[in-house]
Computed example of a mutant assay.
Amino acid sequence: MKSQIHLIRHGITEGNQRRLYYGASDIPLADEGVAELKKLVKEAIYPQADEGDFYTTGLKRTEQTLALIYGDREHEVIPELKEMGFGDFEMKSYEDLKEVPEYVGWISDKSGSAASPGGESIAGFSMRIKEGLRILHGKHQLKELSVRHSGGDAVSVMVCHGGTIATIMDVCFPGQREHFFKWIPDPGHGYTLTLEKSEIVRYEAF
Rank of each mutant, 00 (worst) to 15 (best):
M1Q: 07
S3D: 15
S3T: 12
H6L: 13
L7W: 00
L7T: 00
I8A: 02
R9T: 09
H10F: 10
G11L: 07
I12Y: 00
G15S: 04
G15H: 00
Q17V: 09
Q17I: 14
Q17L: 15
R19L: 12
L20W: 03
Y22A: 08
G23D: 01
G23L: 01
S25W: 02
S25A: 15
P28S: 03
L29V: 06
D31G: 08
E32D: 13
G33Q: 06
V34P: 00
A35S: 12
E36V: 10
L37P: 06
K38G: 09
K39H: 11
L40C: 08
V41L: 11
I45D: 05
P47A: 09
P47R: 01
P47S: 07
D50S: 12
D53I: 13
F54E: 03
G58I: 14
K60Q: 14
K60C: 09
T62H: 01
T62C: 04
E63F: 07
E63I: 12
E63L: 14
T65H: 03
T65A: 04
A67E: 13
A67P: 02
R73P: 04
H75Y: 13
V77L: 03
V77N: 02
I78R: 05
P79W: 02
P79G: 05
E80I: 02
E80C: 08
L81P: 08
L81H: 08
E83C: 11
D88R: 13
D88Y: 06
F89M: 11
M91E: 09
K92A: 12
Y94G: 00
D96A: 06
D96W: 01
L97R: 11
K98S: 13
K98R: 15
P101R: 14
Y103E: 00
V104H: 04
V104Q: 14
G105R: 15
W106P: 11
I107L: 11
S113V: 12
A114T: 13
A114Q: 11
A115Q: 09
S116H: 05
P117S: 04
G119Q: 00
E120L: 06
S121N: 07
F125P: 04
F125L: 03
S126A: 14
R128E: 07
K130V: 08
H137F: 09
H137M: 11
K139M: 10
K139D: 10
L142I: 05
L142D: 13
K143F: 08
E144S: 08
V147M: 10
H149V: 11
S150P: 05
G152E: 10
A154N: 03
V155S: 06
V155Y: 04
V157L: 11
V159E: 01
H161L: 05
G162Y: 00
A166K: 02
F173K: 02
P174T: 03
F180L: 15
F181E: 12
P185N: 01
P187G: 00
P187T: 04
G188D: 03
G190K: 01
L193V: 15
L195K: 02
K197G: 06
I200L: 08
I200R: 01
A205S: 13
F206E: 04
